[in-house]
């Protein structure tokens, strides 16, 4: 599903963010990406949803060769990948409902489908009753739930989450993790970068540790392995 062969990423200013990364993530896996700040975790994620292109190496996601992808095809690859960020990235002027439904308008779904599916995912994230609120009227945890609803509304095969609990208190973080577990359980691959030791050590999954741009550890049901 996600395959990296000898992936290198050098930013235009010369920073080498990833060096010779080799990894295979299968369908319906749940993977934590851990490592110190600046190790290259976000870069790893950005390559998957094609915000950045590898400088060298072979990368395929859902069977698409990301490195050689034509500009015109990028939107269609992204529709099969849901992305969640630490800072939610909701559109401040749209309601919770509109923030989710617009991801379906993008793929030109029918009005009835949009209505049904949007309410369905709002229900799944437990925020049906807040459909009419704009982000400023929602708590951080609620905004992140809306962002997750937006990420899953088109039934992507992969969710890429870059520190989704980074701005949330422990209790709210656990709520978000339960939600991601539920989505994983329904058959979606999840790749999640995190600094949250408690979560990684409690909700045991595969752990890939990156340091200075290289994978230094890759264990099924691994541990966080760093002090905070």
């Amino acid at each position: 599903m996600i395959e990296m062969h000898d992936i290198w990423k050098t930013y235009p200013d010369g920073t080498v963010a990833l060096q010779s990364v080799n990894v295979v993530i299968d369908r319906n896996e749940f993977v934590y990406i851990v490592g110190p700040s600046g190790a290259g975790k976000s870069t790893f994620m950005k390559l998957i949803y094609r915000e950045e292109v590898p400088s060298k190496g072979q990368l395929s996601v859902n069977g698409f060769n990301i490195g050689k992808l034509k500009q015109r095809k990028i939107p269609y690859v992204r529709r099969n990948i849901g992305v969640v960020f630490q800072d939610y990235r909701l559109l401040p002027k749209l309601t919770a409902y509109e923030n989710v439904s617009f991801a379906m308008e993008v793929i030109e779904a029918s009005k009835r489908q949009i209505r049904r599916r949007t309410m369905e995912v709002l229900d799944l994230v437990g925020l049906k009753h807040k459909a009419g609120s704009v982000p400023a009227q929602l708590s951080g945890g609620e905004q992140q739930r809306i962002a997750i609803a937006r990420a899953i509304v088109n039934n992507p095969s992969v969710i890429v989450a870059d520190e989704p609990t980074g701005n949330l208190d422990p209790e709210t973080s656990w709520g978000i993790m339960k939600l991601l577990e539920e989505i994983h359980f329904r058959g979606t691959t999840i790749v999640m970068a995190t600094h949250n030791k408690e979560i990684v050590n409690t909700l045991r999954k595969r752990v890939i540790a990156i340091e200075r741009g290289t994978i230094v550890r890759d264990e099924p049901r691994g541990e966080y392995g760093y002090e905070i």
Partner: peptide, 11 residues
């Protein structure tokens, strides 16, 4: 954000 959810340029 529109690009992230897979909107085409013309959209």
């Amino acid at each position: 954000i529109m690009k992230l959810v897979g909107a085409t340029n013309s959209f």
